[in-house]
């Protein structure tokens, strides 16, 4: 598959006797939103963590932009353009919105070992940070501490940090969680445009968002992918209906 940006082959990961990732193969292609759905505890977050390097797989390979990244640590994978958001928002609480995004700009661009010039007066950091804040609609919250943001704003801050990495692929773990109808709709519009910048692997329970955004869907149950296909194919798949979507879908 020449236009695959990210390819997982036969990944396996167990926690003790629990097989959380069971021979998972999956790819993420240029320009697409690939949704990963499945019941609680299916192993979706565990899979994301193996891609980012927070967890190391027991077997299988991960190829990103034509190169194996299995041996790289999380920071190195992030610098290659693997940008993730966390299921439970994870930001730097005492930093302002601007500082949080600057941190991501710094991580992506390098030059951490500079000790003299104040970071807040370094346009190499502040200009891109302001730009990404604008992109997610946080331009008027630059000096607010992340700890004081609303849940929805913190989600957007995470997205801005992901954007600041100049990502080659997004890994978003339930970005809609807890956003409410209005917030989810707003984020759906935002994500829809992002796929052209970099493809998105989207873990999401909100099926409205998944059906609105996804080009393809993979269904994970007990660590195994039971189906991959287009929205229509997945909607029509009996096994998926039984195990996950329920009767109403």
């Amino acid at each position: 598959m020449s236009d695959a940006v990210l390819t997982l082959s036969h990944l396996r990961k167990s926690f003790g006797s629990l097989l959380a990732t069971d021979d998972v193969s999956l790819d993420l292609r240029r320009g697409e939103v690939h949704a990963l759905i499945g019941p609680n505890g299916a192993g979706k977050s565990t899979l994301i963590k193996q891609i980012t390097g927070e967890l190391r797989q027991d077997a299988g390979t991960i190829v990103f932009e034509g190169e194996r990244i299995d041996h790289l640590d999380t920071a190195a994978r992030a610098r290659r353009g693997l940008a993730r958001s966390f299921q439970v928002s994870s930001v730097i609480p005492a930093f302002t919105v601007l500082q949080n995004i600057m941190l991501a700009v710094l991580g992506a661009g390098g030059g951490v070992y500079r000790f003299v010039r104040p970071a807040l007066r370094d346009p190499g950091l502040t200009d891109p940070a302001r730009f990404h804040a604008e992109q997610v609609g946080l331009a008027d919250r630059l000096t607010t501490r992340a700890a004081a943001l609303s849940h929805g704003e913190r989600r957007r801050l995470e997205l801005a940090m992901a954007l600041a990495l100049r990502p080659r692929a997004f890994l978003l773990d339930e970005p809609m969680a807890g956003l409410g109808l209005e917030g989810a709709r707003h984020l759906t519009t935002l994500l829809s445009d992002l796929r052209h910048q970099a493809p998105i692997l989207l873990v999401e329970h909100d099926m409205d968002a998944v059906f609105a955004l996804a080009d393809r869907i993979s269904v994970l149950v007990y660590g195994r992918i039971i189906a991959t296909g287009t929205v229509a194919e997945i909607r029509a798949n009996d096994a998926v209906r039984r195990s996950y979507l329920g009767e109403g879908a």
Binding site: E54, D73, A75, F86, S90, F95, G107, M161, A164
Partner: peptide, 16 residues
């Protein structure tokens, strides 16, 4: 200071 507060987050944006 970012790493002190949240090193998982720091690593996720490329900082060791």
């Amino acid at each position: 200071q970012a790493a002190r507060q949240n090193d998982q987050r720091a690593a996720a944006v490329g900082i060791r």
